[in-house]
Structure formats: structure tokens, C-alpha cells
């Protein structure tokens, strides 16, 4: 139901296949028809998915697509909005949007394809690449420490913080379903093998280095412990909190979504009084 006629162009073995499959199966299980959800896409291998998924889509600018997702949600808050984006886009180019949209609790489910590389531009390091990693733009090894998106989200008021693994589609599907159902900002960082540019972090490597969280914590400080675990990577929901979503705080949106409000006749008599 959610496939276009265009055949996916991801490399054989790419983690994007698993994420695409999880997304589509989440949409199906959520019983959303193609016109009942909006998916935004960024720029990167991950977001080439825009052409393969049949639904309302918005394929925006590199690093800037999540603000567009928030705008879509504010204009029509009845629709679930899911943002597909990569680590380079969300944690690097669009870092300020990552920090600010999260703390505003916009009701958007952000799925970050985190393969620790700029893959579409042929393998440069990103802000999540491990220190000392050798890439085409770090021949002597990366100097910077990597961003820890889970820890940042936990201390920066995100209300749903999760990590999935592209190699475990069933688990990831459940995370996406929970994220979409969650009222507010949900971050789902997905460990995504890139078989071309990241040989170190293969499916096998991830399988050896991840462990599953049992259930979402309700205390940020406790959740941070798993987020800061340097030996192994936790997957699952780190933290979840129920809090009004951003759009629920707007008087303009109480009665009905913005786009359904009639603009055919506007009376400006009231405000003109200020200028008399």
C-alpha cells in the first residue's frame, strides 16, 4: 500500500531497507492510509526514501526539514507527522533545530538514520562519528568527540527518547508506533549500518554491541545512565513523559486545525480601534 512504483536505490545491504520496512509496517499497524500521514524527508541516502514511499511527503532542505515538519503539524495537527532525516542533517547541519524543536515538544516523530557518515557525499565523518575514525576527510582520524544525541535529548526536555537498530525491524517498528502514538516530540535515533563507508560498524558489530532496554524510564537521570554507557549501546525507549504537545498550547488551535479555519471573510474592525 505504501510503495510507489519507483524501485529503491539503496545499496545492497544498506540499513535504510530495514528502516523503510519498519516505517511502512508501523503505518500499516497504525491503520493510516497514505493520505492520512505526512512524512518529511531531508537530504541524504535515507531521504531518497521520499520517492519510494506512497503518502503525503515533503522532501525539504538539508538539515532544515524538521522545522517544516513542525510547520505542517501546526497547520494541521490532526495529521501524524513523521520526519525522516540523517545524523549529518539533524545533529550537524540542523543542530539548532534539533535543540530547539525538541524542547518545544512539537508533536513530530523524528527518525534519525544514524550511520555515522555523510554517505551520499561519499563517506565524510559527521558529528556522530567516533573520535579517531579514519574517513575521507579525516585521514589521520577524527579529532572531535562525537555528539551523544540520546544524552542531549534527555537533558534537553525531549518527551520521548528512543534508539533502534536497522537490523531489528520488528523492534524498530514497535518504536516507531510508540513514537507516533506519543503526544509530543519523539526522537528515534536508529543505528544504521552503512556497508560502503562504515566498515567498522557492521550488522555483526552492532549485534555484539547492543543491549535491549526493558521499558521506558520516567526519570531522566536514571535514563542517562544507559545513554552514557560507553561500552555498549542501549536500544529501546530510554525515557517517556506525558506533557502537552506544542500545538495544544495555542488558543488558535483549540477548536480545529488551522487549515480548516475559514478565511473567506475577515473583519478587522476590532484591531483598527488601536490605531484611531
Amino acid at each position: 500500500m505504501y510503495n510507489t512504483k519507483i524501485k529503491p536505490t539503496f545499496c545492497p545491504g544498506c540499513g535504510n531497507y530495514g528502516i523503510k520496512q519498519a516505517l511502512q509496517s508501523a503505518l500499516e499497524q497504525l491503520d493510516l492510509k497514505p493520505h492520512q500521514a505526512v512524512i518529511t524527508y531531508d537530504v541524504g541516502c535515507n531521504s531518497n526514501m521520499a520517492d519510494f514511499i506512497y503518502a503525503y511527503g515533503f522532501h525539504g532542505l538539508h538539515g532544515r526539514s524538521v522545522p517544516s515538519a513542525a510547520g505542517i503539524k501546526l497547520a494541521n495537527h490532526k495529521l501524524p507527522v513523521i520526519a525522516i532525516i540523517g545524523d549529518g542533517a539533524f545533529y550537524s547541519e540542523g543542530g539548532t533545530h534539533f535543540l530547539n524543536l525538541m524542547r518545544a515538544n512539537h508533536d513530530v516523530t523524528v527518525i534519525v538514520h544514524n550511520n555515522h557518515r555523510f554517505s551520499l557525499t561519499a563517506g565524510q565523518y559527521t558529528s556522530t562519528t567516533e573520535e579517531e575514525t579514519i574517513t575521507v576527510t579525516s585521514p589521520a582520524g577524527v579529532i572531535e568527540e562525537p555528539v551523544n544525541p540520546i544524552a542531549v535529548s534527555l537533558v534537553n526536555h525531549a518527551t520521548f527518547v528512543a534508539r533502534g537498530f536497522a537490523g531489528d525491524v520488528k523492534h524498530l517498528t514497535d518504536l516507531i508506533i510508540s513514537g507516533v502514538k506519543h503526544k509530543g516530540f519523539s526522537l528515534i535515533d536508529v543505528l544504521q549500518p552503512c556497508v560502503i563507508w562504515n566498515k567498522e560498524q557492521s550488522y555483526e558489530w552492532y549485534k555484539k554491541n547492543i543491549y535491549y532496554l526493558k521499558k521506558a524510564d520516567s526519570k531522566r537521570q536514571r535514563a542517562l545512565k544507559d545513554a552514557l554507557n560507553e561500552k555498549k549501546l542501549a536500544v529501546g525507549v530510554f525515557y517517556q513523559e506525558n506533557k502537552p504537545a506544542y500545538h495544544e498550547e495555542f488558543p488558535a488551535l483549540i477548536k480545529k486545525p488551522l487549515v480548516y479555519q475559514d478565511i473567506r471573510k475577515i473583519d478587522i474592525r476590532e484591531v483598527m480601534k488601536e490605531f484611531g
Binding site: 522545522p67 510547520g71 487549515v259
Partner: peptide
């Protein structure tokens, strides 16, 4: 940057 990208999201969704 966020301002204009957000406004474009709203425009896509049908709002002026």
C-alpha cells in the same frame, strides 16, 4: 532558517 522552512511547511499543509 527555521522561520521560513516552518512557514513553508504550513503553506504546504494549506495555510496562508
Amino acid at each position: 532558517i527555521s522561520a521560513i522552512n516552518m512557514a513553508l511547511g504550513a503553506s504546504y499543509a494549506g495555510a496562508r
